[in-house]
Simulated scan of single mutants.
Amino acid sequence: MPAATGGKVRQIFTAALRGILVMAAITAFTDLRAVAQSFPSQPIKLVVPAAPGGSTDILARSMAQLIQQQTGVSVVVDNRAGAGGTIGVGAVVHAPPDGHTLLVTVPDGITVLPHLRKDIPYRAAQDLMPIGLMAETSWLFAVNAGSPFKTMKDLIAAAAAKPGSIRYSSPGIGTSAHLVTERLRLQSNTDMLHVPYKGAGPATMAVVMGEVDMIATSPISLKAFLDGGKIRGLAITGGRRSAVLPDIPTMEESGFAGFVASAWFGVFAPAGLSADRAEQVDRIVSAAVRHPDFQKQILAMGLDPRLMNRTEFAAYVAADSTRWREVVEKSKVSLSD
């Protein structure tokens, strides 16, 4: 075959292939109405175990809009705040396992509080089916801008030299922010004083005002204080540096080997969902999460996009639960403290 003819054939083939790929990408989002012939057959409810306006609520509302576009059915967000998220989780646990009620949540009511409380009316590992991971965020260890501590090693050296002298705030006993700092205390073999507050806002202001020495919280929630020179970031707990705060080192870069921890945002369904229905729900949720508008929303919130399928997310949640169980057992944290 002449070279010119071969080149023309390749051009035609490449153009055809590009067209096929574009059509496949469009179909992945817009052609899910075929699924809607059997599911969903009624409005979908996304239960958020937190008050309106927070990160989980914002993600759920963005997802609701995209799922509604996909399927043509109404999607509502039902905020069920209270009891550390366990009220909202419980509402989904007891919902019919038909895929029309889903949970959009962070770890607390799934992998943290079940190790701290005996009165939770569900068993997350048995009563919920993981559907998919949407995003993650690291914790940022930070101190007041006037603090003498420039690095995590400085702070830990002070804690080791004078046990109990370092005070750290959290949104409350048993929260993820509390336990991630307990993990730091255990790994560094130091004694630090926990000062719980009623919510993330007061806990953050305690560091800004110099009432405590340190806090662990999401990087995006501290960015304004960092930019304003009120707070100094020491290290983040992610496996890589934050895109929001690229100049702050990770814990591993700071000399704390293996110290990687993330808060996550995921979707669950009631256990008992059939394999076929679970696959349908997975397809719909995944298409929404992969949509460019949803990805932009995640990045705008300072979160790290990360998508996992049902099998991967189930293993991820199980490992996360094991990590927090070990921290709770070793630190002897109790909600009656």
Rank of each mutant, 00 (worst) to 15 (best):
P2R: 03
T5L: 09
A15F: 12
R33T: 14
P40E: 04
L46R: 09
T56F: 02
D57E: 08
I67G: 03
G72T: 07
V77T: 15
R80Q: 08
G90I: 00
A91V: 03
P97E: 12
H100R: 01
H100A: 11
L102P: 06
V104M: 08
T105W: 10
I110V: 15
T111G: 03
I120P: 10
A125T: 08
P130E: 05
I131R: 01
N144R: 03
M152Q: 09
K153H: 13
G164C: 07
Y168H: 13
S169F: 08
G174I: 06
T175D: 03
H178C: 12
T181A: 13
E182P: 13
D191H: 08
H194F: 12
G201D: 06
M205W: 07
M209N: 11
D213S: 05
I231S: 06
T237M: 04
T237C: 04
R241I: 02
L245P: 05
E252A: 08
E253R: 13
S262C: 03
F268H: 13
A269D: 01
A271F: 01
G272R: 04
A275Q: 15
Q280E: 11
V281G: 13
R283F: 05
S286D: 12
A288R: 00
P292N: 04
I298K: 12
P305Y: 01
T311P: 04
Y316M: 12
Y316W: 14
S331I: 00
V333R: 05
V333W: 00
